[in-house]
Computed example of a mutant assay.
Amino acid sequence: YPVGAKFTGRITNITDYGAFVELEAGVEGLVHVSEMSWTKKNVHPGKIVSTSQEVDVVVLDVDASKRRVSLGLKQAMANPWEAFTAAHPIGSTVEGEVKNTTEFGLFIGLDNDIDGMVHLSDIDWNTPGEEAVQKYRRGETVKAKVLDVDVEKERISLGIKQLGGDPMTGDSFRKGQTVTVTITEVTSGGLEVRFGEEEAPMGAFIRKSDLSRDRSEQRPERYAVGDRLDAQITNVDKAARRVSLSVKALEMAEDKAAIEQFGSSDSGASLGDILGAALRDKAKAGKE
């Protein structure tokens, strides 16, 4: 019985520590509980195999002096982590069900009863992991990107935030740029908003004082979750991963542009005249 050879045998006895397999008349080997299944850990052998069942086994070790043959049941099957790597190389996208949420992250059910883990730091680009993990529920189907596979340690690292590019890389957002945002939360101090690509949205907070140039309009309660509005980017801090937004700055920029196009402080035209001309011009362009 050479080590590594594969044989077909019959289960003769099942114990707490494994199962005995008859290879031929008078020759039996033991499949230790740890060698029975790739994925069913800490499960009684009786829940994996049954007496008289015919099974394929691989010889792991032979001790001639003790007339003992050590067998492996799982070694006769494909290693699910190797199979996963072949089917889903690093960088590919997988889909699975959330099996569990822990203090470390999310466990996602994958092919062949194996799990992959999304670490807290790989859930969302902008939301802290402890907060981001709360959005997911057991049984929910999610997509994730394969970041790493360690076949020996039987670990698969996944990332949800990597499905979309990092919104802070490149020149996606610039100071002075106008963006359309969606309100995600209304607080007494201002508005929590999201904007940018759907796959990798950017979060920001518009302070109450930046909601309008008019003090009477600086009331967050005027808005509701889901409302959309335009705001101007007033600062981009890539190191802190923070973008500052202001509706007031956008209003002032639009007023300044209107004055430059339709009048000047020397022309004698009032601000009302200038803005009226700008609005008429905007309405005319909209009809065309």
Rank of each mutant, 00 (worst) to 15 (best):
P80Y: 05
E24Q: 12
N100Y: 13
F84Y: 01
A231R: 05
L60Y: 00
A86R: 15
R241K: 15
E35W: 00
N13V: 03
T93A: 06
S267V: 01
R137I: 05
G139Y: 07
M168G: 01
N79F: 11
V98Y: 09
Q218D: 01
N42K: 15
T8L: 06
E197W: 09
M168I: 02
A204N: 02
V21Q: 00
S52T: 11
T93K: 14
S212V: 03
Q53E: 14
A278V: 08
A257K: 10
T51R: 15
V57Y: 00
A277Q: 12
I48T: 06
S246A: 07
R228F: 09
D171M: 09
Q177L: 07
E103I: 13
T102Y: 09
D266K: 11
Q75M: 10
L30G: 00
D111L: 11
R280E: 04
D255W: 10
R194M: 14
Q162Y: 09
N112I: 07
D171C: 06
G276E: 00
G29R: 05
R213G: 13
I183S: 05
E185A: 15
A224Q: 13
P201V: 04
R242W: 07
A64M: 02
K248H: 05
D255F: 07
K161H: 02
K208C: 05
D16L: 14
L30V: 07
R174S: 12
G18L: 07
E97I: 13
K248D: 06
K282L: 06
I11T: 04
G196I: 05
E254M: 15
L110S: 10
N13C: 04
D16Y: 08
V49L: 00
F84V: 03
D115Q: 12
A64S: 04
T102E: 04
H88A: 06
L147V: 14
K41I: 13
D171P: 02
G286H: 12
V33E: 00
G190P: 08
K135S: 13
R219T: 14
S188D: 12
L71T: 02
G72N: 00
P2N: 05
E221Y: 09
L106C: 12
A83L: 11
E24S: 13
G4R: 04
S209A: 13
T8V: 03
K282I: 00
L120P: 01
S265T: 13
V243I: 14
G129W: 06
K248M: 09
K145M: 13
I206S: 05
G286Y: 15
L211K: 07
S65D: 11
G4M: 05
D210P: 02
M77D: 09
K284L: 14
K6H: 12
D122N: 13
A269Q: 10
R219F: 08
G286D: 11
F107Y: 15
G196M: 08
P220Y: 02
T178L: 06
A204G: 13
K6Y: 06
N79C: 10
K143P: 02
P2A: 03
H44M: 06
G91C: 09
G26N: 00
D61L: 10
V243G: 02
L73H: 03
I160G: 01
D113F: 08
L110Q: 09
A5K: 14
M36F: 01
E35L: 00
A249G: 06
S52Y: 10
R228E: 14
K40L: 09
L271H: 04
W125R: 00
A204S: 15
T234E: 05
I48H: 12
R222C: 07
R138P: 02
Q53M: 12
K282H: 11
S172C: 06
S50T: 14
